[in-house]
Simulated scan of single mutants.
Amino acid sequence: MAENENTPQHADTTTPYTPVFDERIRTIIYIVTLVAGIVGLGVSAFGDPQVGAYISSAAGVIAAAFGVAYNPVRLSGK
């Protein structure tokens, strides 16, 4: 058990998490997928709703794929 009951044991700062993708790459992907999501919304409203939904969904999946996800293998101490 941790010394402090409010601090989880996994919150140890000795092994910081290293993201898979660089911060600059993630920022570019987030901006591109934001624009794609807005385009998808416009296509849904003014064009074919199915195509717009596909564009928006694909943008969301791509943005999530480049997000920061916890992966124990990526710990810098390993």
Rank of each mutant, 00 (worst) to 15 (best):
I25S: 11
Y70S: 12
F21A: 07
G37R: 03
G77W: 02
K78M: 10
A11F: 08
G37E: 07
R74I: 00
G42D: 03
L34Y: 15
G40S: 09
I62L: 07
K78Q: 11
D48R: 14
G52F: 11
Y70T: 08
V73N: 01
V39C: 00
Q50F: 14
V68S: 02
G52L: 11
A45E: 05
Q50P: 00
V20N: 01
A59N: 04
T13N: 10
V35T: 15
T27N: 14
P19K: 00
S44F: 13
R74C: 03
R74L: 03
E3V: 03
Q9S: 07
M1V: 13
V39G: 03
S76I: 07
A63Y: 01
T33L: 06
T33H: 07
Q50W: 15
T33C: 15
T18Y: 05
P8H: 08
Q9I: 07
I25P: 07
L75M: 14
E23P: 07
P16K: 10
N6K: 05
I29Y: 05
G47A: 14
P16Y: 10
A11P: 06
H10C: 08
V73G: 09
A11C: 08
A59Q: 03
G67S: 15
V32N: 07
V32Q: 07
Q9E: 11
N6Q: 06
Y70D: 13
I31R: 10
A36T: 02
Y30Q: 14
E5A: 03
A69E: 02
D48F: 06
V61H: 01
Y54L: 15
M1G: 04
Y70A: 02
V51L: 15
P19G: 01
V68L: 12
A11Y: 02
G42W: 03
I38A: 10
E23H: 06
M1D: 04
I55A: 04
N4P: 05
I62H: 00
P72W: 04
V68Q: 12
H10E: 13
F46G: 12
D48T: 12
E5K: 03
A53S: 14
M1F: 00
S56T: 11
V73K: 12
R74A: 02
G40T: 09
G37W: 01
S44H: 15
K78C: 06
T13E: 09
R26C: 14
N71L: 12
Y54M: 15
S56D: 06
S56R: 13
V39L: 07
S57P: 00
G77S: 07
I38E: 05
S56E: 06
V32D: 00
I31W: 04
T14W: 02
T13D: 08
L41H: 04
A45D: 03
G52I: 12
F21K: 04
T27E: 15
V61L: 09
V61C: 13
Y30K: 12
F21I: 10
H10M: 08
R26A: 15
F46R: 15
